[in-house]
Design a protein around this nucleic acid. Structure first.
Length: 182
DNA sequence: AAGAAGATTCGCT
DNA sequence: GCGAATCTTCTTA
């Protein structure tokens, strides 16, 4: 699913208006991955990861940033895909205001930044992304060759695994040159 | 009840 | 590239 989501469009419908972006970077946290939030079993805070595929899991990281995931395994099995970066499409002025910056390239480059840009907070935890609502996914096609793979960012456990996917050449992808070369 | 770790970001050097 | 800020969750006493 992490690979499948590259190129899809994440749409946020909010009283402020619509904001949306193309997903250009993801990371997989499959069942049994020691870095995954579902690794130690289901708890109230992690329950969304155990929902049917296509539900949102939102949590606060380091006290300052929200991160957004898409549940990826059948009900009862905990796993998810972290959305790490978007290419801004609609509502760019709104995103700029929420982020407090102008630079298009940095509006949604990074998991915490995209959550801020789209006003994704804990109230969206558990939402069904396959139904048009406050937050949903629109389909789009992308050539297989456009997707590259690398190790994941900011974790210590199972760090060598090739579970990060991104759009090759996109300036909206996070991480360093080394990680984006592939 | 207290402490450590963590899927980050921003400002400086 | 480095370190602080910040808070939720889980572990240990």
């Amino acid at each position: 699913m992490a690979r499948f989501l590259i190129g899809k469009i994440l749409v946020r419908d909010h009283p402020d208006g619509r904001t949306s972006g193309r997903i250009v970077e993801t990371e997989a946290y499959p069942p049994g991955d020691a870095s995954g939030h579902a690794f130690r079993g289901e708890t109230p805070a992690r329950r969304s990861l155990f929902l049917r595929p296509g539900h949102g899991y939102v949590y606060m990281a380091y006290g300052s940033s929200y991160c957004f995931n898409v549940s990826s395994e059948p009900a009862g099995i905990g796993a998810g895909v972290l959305i790490r970066a978007l290419e801004p499409l609609e509502g760019i002025a709104t995103m700029q205001r929420r982020r407090g910056i102008e630079t298009l390239r940095d509006l949604a480059r990074g998991p915490g930044r995209l959550a801020t840009a789209l006003a994704i907070e804990r109230d969206l935890d558990g939402i069904d992304l396959c139904v048009k609502g406050p937050l949903w996914l629109a389909t789009a096609a992308l050539p297989i060759d456009a997707i590259a793979v690398s190790v994941r960012i900011g974790i210590s456990r199972e760090a060598h695994r090739l579970r990060r996917f991104y759009e090759r050449g996109s300036p909206y992808v996070s991480g360093t040159r080394r990680l984006n070369a592939g």
